[in-house]
């Protein structure tokens, strides 16, 4: 009886929700509004600091850590790698110029009909110059991305969804659906934790708001003891709810990054970051 009622309620809700079209920009404004309403004390430009924007106690520790940033070594290693010529005599600068290009990613490639992320572009730069691709989640690729993010600090997140290409919008919509869909044995959507649950505690650990989630990658995580990429984090959050994670830099996670970064349009790129 109750079950039927709940199902019916769900169907009615879903119908009401889907009956009006929301553009990506409508989505983004509602998203931003959701978090600024939920955290009225947090300035809009502070959400890029993740959990530290809403947890003053953890923030004090973090500010101390940032005095001797744990990602510094990775940035240095990334710089050295960036300037090392490939076997064919060319180098990353032939693909990325001075390397301060964080603000251009992710973007929709209208010819290839797919989302291009910074890490994907780094590996494609390598393979097109006869070098082996790097592993996606950590190590050299994260160091390169850390260096490039570091020298791009202050660029504004400005992801575009070309209006003349319905396939770009479809990719965005798939990323969005992914974000709100419950998965895994524990039955959580990303938004269940980083929206509904944002700012609330899971024991000692609080959950960070999703606004600003894509601004500060890669991240040096104390738990990893190393620097890692955004897709590594996606995989961890999927597995944590006992869902099978998807391939790093596969279609699902790139479209998820496309959606999630779009939601942070207007925020500032401030990577690499340091997190617990």
């Amino acid at each position: 009886m109750l079950k039927k009622y709940a199902l019916l309620l769900g169907a009615v809700l879903a119908l009401a929700w889907s009956s009006t079209y929301a553009s990506p920009e409508d989505d983004r404004m509602a998203f931003e509004n959701y978090f600024t309403t939920k955290f009225p004390g947090v300035p809009l430009n502070d959400f890029k600091n993740g959990i530290y924007s809403v947890d003053p106690v953890a923030r004090a520790d973090w500010e101390q850590i940032e005095e001797f940033p744990p990602y510094e070594l990775a940035v240095d290693a990334g710089e050295a790698e960036y300037n090392k010529p490939f076997a064919n005599g060319k180098s990353y600068s032939d693909c990325f110029g001075d390397g301060a290009v964080r603000g251009q990613y992710p973007y929709w490639d209208g010819e290839r009909k797919e989302v291009i992320t910074l890490e994907l572009a780094i590996n494609e730069c390598r393979t097109s110059n006869g070098e082996k691709p790097l592993k996606w989640n950590k190590g050299k690729i994260a160091e390169l991305s850390a260096y490039m993010s570091y020298i791009s600090r202050g660029q504004t997140v400005d992801v575009k969804i070309p209006e003349d290409d319905p396939e770009a919008l479809a990719a965005y919509e798939r990323g969005k659906q992914f974000y709100y869909t419950k998965r895994g044995q524990l039955n959580f959507s990303c938004f269940d934790c980083h929206g509904t649950g944002a700012g609330k505690g899971v024991r000692l650990e609080k959950l960070s708001p999703a606004l600003g989630h894509a601004t500060h990658w890669p991240v040096y995580r104390s738990k990893w003891g190393a620097i890692g990429t955004l897709h590594r984090r996606f995989g961890g959050c999927n597995r944590q709810v006992r869902a099978k994670n998807f391939k790093s830099q596969g279609q699902e996670y790139r479209e998820l990054e496309y959606f999630l970064t779009y939601m942070s349009n207007g925020q500032e790129f401030n990577g690499p970051g340091a997190r617990r």
Partner: peptide
């Protein structure tokens, strides 16, 4: 979920 299909 029987009581609230959106519960966490």
């Amino acid at each position: 979920l029987e009581f609230n299909p959106n519960t966490i």
